[in-house]
Each structure stands twice: as C-alpha cells, then as structure tokens.
C-alpha cells in the first residue's frame, strides 16, 4: 500500500517478478541462461499462426511462405477499390500507395534486425553509411520480402544524391501491364513506400519513387529511384570523407 502512495524513485521496491518501469530491466535472479535463450528464440521465430492452438505447418518451416496469387489478389483489390475510384490522377494514386507502404517499411527494418540476430551475435549494427544501408536493402530486405535479391544497385551519374535499385521482375506487378491510359502508373509505388519507410527509420531521410523501364525480356522492369535529402549527404561527407 505504501509503495502505491509513494511513487518516488528513491524508494525502490524490492525486486519481484515483473517489469518495473521506474527501474527498467533487471536481472531478478529467476531467469537462467537457458531461459534467456528460449526467450530469444521465441522472439525471433517466425510469427505466422493461422489457427490458434493448432500446430501450424507453416510456422514450422524455416522460411514461412505465402501464396503469391493470394498476395497479388489482395494487392490488386487494394489498388482498385481503395485508390482507383478515389484518386483523380496518377500522381495522387502513387502517393497513396506510397503512404500505404511507409509503415510497413518501418516495421520491416525492426523485424529483420531482430530475426537476423542469432544467439551467437545478439546485436545488429545500425547502418551509418549510405552504401551500407543500400546493400543491406538490396540483399537482405529484398530476400525477406520477395525471396530473391534485387537485380542491380546503381549510383546516378547526374545527381550526387540519387541511387537506383533495379528489379527485373517485381513480384507484385509482374502480371499486370497497365493499359495505354495508365502508362505512367507503376503500382510498385507501394514497394517504394516500403523502402522510404525503412530508410527513414534508419535515419536516412529520402524520397523513393518507382519507374517502369522495360528492357528486352523484362517488360515490367522497375527502377526504384532513391533521392536522399541534403542533410544525409552532408552528414556522409563530414563523417566519412577524409
């Protein structure tokens, strides 16, 4: 009773089980090292549970997979119903798709960092260089999202602040070629939003847009143009160019 009336920090209650926000994380001597490992594994295990209480075969697989058809159908409904009928022009539609992908990017960064940590190396490093974070996206994030790596990573010759990630066959739009009226639209603005959210969460503020640049054999080839803001470039220059 007295602990409730007296919330002062100087009076720390005896350590009991449970988390005390005034004190923070404590080792209360009840957890052994194996407990820590179990907790660690539970946190990093893939978290798809479709039927609670049932042994779900997908959760037992190493890399959980979902049907691409199902994902594309949901994504198409998203484009059609949520945006198509309500947007006046292509730019607005792309902006909406971008906004939809943004929170996913933030979560993707956290999720991947947690999952890629192993009991041997429990801490993941935070990226500080532009090239590092772009490499990370090119290989790891693409693998997490699409089960493949992106095809190319390029730096623009004309502008110092522009980088490009190229995907020859973007999985979400590989079956959908826009008709003539929507030639400029690339529904991968959604994926561009994911990238933008991810980079923003990693403290590289930028804007990302998706452009269709077809090439022989790859009619839906998409280029994600990443334009970093001035502050990022200045920081890069100050820190890393000696």
């Amino acid at each position: 009773m007295s602990s409730l009336i007296n919330p002062s920090l100087s009076h720390t209650p005896p350590s009991t089980r449970g988390y005390n926000p005034a004190v923070g994380v404590l080792s209360n001597g009840l957890l052994t090292t194996t407990d820590v490992q179990h907790a660690f594994i539970a946190a990093t295990a893939p978290s798809i549970a479709l039927a609670p209480g049932k042994r779900n075969s997908m959760a037992l697989r190493k890399t959980p997979e979902i049907s691409l058809s199902a994902l594309i159908y949901i994504f198409n409904e998203l484009i059609i119903n949520y945006n198509f009928n309500q947007s006046s022009n292509i730019a607005v539609l792309e902006k909406k798709l971008n906004a939809l992908g943004y929170p996913i990017g933030i979560k993707a960064l956290e999720l991947h960092s947690t999952r890629s940590a192993s009991p041997a190396a429990p801490e993941t490093k935070r990226f500080t260089r532009v090239l590092d974070v772009l490499q990370y996206i090119h290989t790891h994030i693409w693998t997490m999202l699409f089960s493949k790596t992106a095809d190319n990573l390029e730096k623009s010759q004309d502008n110092a602040d522009e980088y490009m990630i190229i995907d020859n066959e973007p999985p979400l739009t590989k079956y959908a070629k826009p008709p003539k009226e929507f030639d400029q639209l690339n529904c991968n603005a959604f994926v561009a939003g994911i990238l933008e959210g991810l980079l923003d969460a990693a403290y590289f503020s930028c804007s990302v847009s998706a452009h269709t640049v077809p090439v022989d054999g790859f009619p839906m080839r998409t280029v994600y143009l990443i334009k970093f803001s001035r502050s990022v470039l200045e920081r890069e220059f100050v820190r890393f160019s000696r």
Binding site: I72, N76, I79, F84, Y175, A176, K177, P179, F182
Partner: peptide
C-alpha cells in the same frame, strides 16, 4: 495475366497485352 491484372474488370472484353 488476366485475373491478376488490376486494370481488368470481370466479364469484360480482355484487353491485356501480356
């Protein structure tokens, strides 16, 4: 290539290049 095309409406004439 028709069902997964968001620009195609069901039961309409098919105009999909791919």
């Amino acid at each position: 290539y028709v069902m997964k095309n968001p620009y195609y409406s069901l039961d309409m004439p098919i105009r999909c290049d791919m």
